[in-house]
């Protein structure tokens, strides 16, 4: 029993890293832009669908993953336009895109499910090749973290962070906040769709339901990751690695509760409850445990 559990950990790590990459996409919108974007439930499936369709029709897997990434960028663009140009609140904009993507994903795949077995196709990763998958994923994680670390240090990246922090200040400093919000949503969904392409290869199929509840897993990974690394360092790259770690921890816990004999049907409910509680903690802290605030003045506080 214990050995079975131990044997499942490498697989859980691989799956955790895939969802960790997805969670980095969620981190970009939820933490940096301060928008809760529900597009991801659809765009992760779009990524998987595009990758599966292309690979099964003989396209090189690298090209297929690039196409999946590009498709994700478009998904983000839809939500961005709905939100900025059409003035729809971000949550609703994401839900609308998500619903559109349900149809689009079915049209892309032509059916609800496409098998993508590694014995038939040249894939980068697969469940039965756990070690190879982990190494490939580590490389992708390194690349994604490095690119984002660089990007958010640039003028453009800084203006994205400013937008998430304070929109009126950003506009007063000449930042086109509509543009930065669209850019953030585009980038986020590109990453999410890319993780969908990885997931389809790893699990050996793309499925119309593969994105259901993705936002909750993403949020869980972000929250767990922050809880783990926030005391170690506030460095941006460390935070991103924390999100990946959050995904891995999530899947370790997932495997563990399955081994403990929990009904797998209840897992989504459990995830949602855990995320709800974690989201409530900062609010409860403020409401019930805040120390009375005293306004300070005087020489040192001009």
């Amino acid at each position: 029993m214990f050995l079975d559990w131990l044997g499942a950990l490498p697989g859980a790590s691989a799956q955790g890293m895939i969802w960790g990459i997805m969670a980095i996409g969620v981190y970009l919108t939820y933490r940096i832009l301060d928008l809760a974007d529900l597009t991801v439930d659809g765009s992760i499936c779009t990524g998987g669908a595009v990758c599966a369709v292309l690979v099964t029709s003989g396209v090189d897997v690298w090209v297929a993953m690039l196409a999946a990434f590009a498709a994700g960028l478009l998904c983000g663009l839809i939500t961005g336009v709905l939100h900025t140009f059409m003035g729809i609140p971000p949550i609703l904009a994401g839900i609308l895109t998500q619903l559109m993507l349900w149809s689009i994903n079915l049209k892309i795949m032509g059916k609800a499910n496409i098998a993508l077995p590694i014995r038939k196709y040249e894939l980068l990763l697969a469940q039965i090749k756990t070690l190879q998958s982990i190494l490939v994923l580590l490389a992708f994680v390194a690349v994604v973290v490095a690119i984002l670390y660089w990007f958010f240090g640039t003028e453009l990246g800084t203006s994205l962070r400013a937008t998430g922090n304070n929109q009126s200040m950003s506009r007063a400093q000449g930042i086109n906040t509509d543009f930065t919000k669209i850019l953030g949503l585009v980038l986020s969904n590109g990453i999410v769709a890319f993780s969908g392409a990885l997931l389809a290869q790893y699990q050996g199929f793309a499925d119309i339901n593969m994105g259901r509840g993705a936002i909750v897993i993403g949020l869980a990974a972000v929250i767990i990751g922050e809880a783990v690394v926030s005391r170690i360092s506030s460095n941006f790259a460390v935070r991103l690695c924390g999100v990946i770690l959050g995904g891995v921890i999530y899947y370790f816990v997932y495997q563990t509760v399955i081994f403990l004999g929990l009904d797998a049907d209840l897992l989504k409910m459990l995830s949602a409850i855990v995320v709800a509680v974690f989201l409530a903690v900062p609010y409860w802290k403020k409401r019930f445990f805040a120390k009375p605030h005293r306004t300070k003045g005087g020489e040192n506080h001009a």
Binding site: T154, E155, T158, R161, A162, N165, N166, S170, Q173
Partner: peptide, 22 residues
């Protein structure tokens, strides 16, 4: 911007009206 450093805030203002690139 509260979550950004003092120097980052000033750098944002320094680029007011300029193109923000990479």
């Amino acid at each position: 911007a509260a979550d950004m450093q003092i120097d980052e805030n000033l750098a944002l203002a320094k680029r007011r009206g300029k193109r923000r690139g990479l």
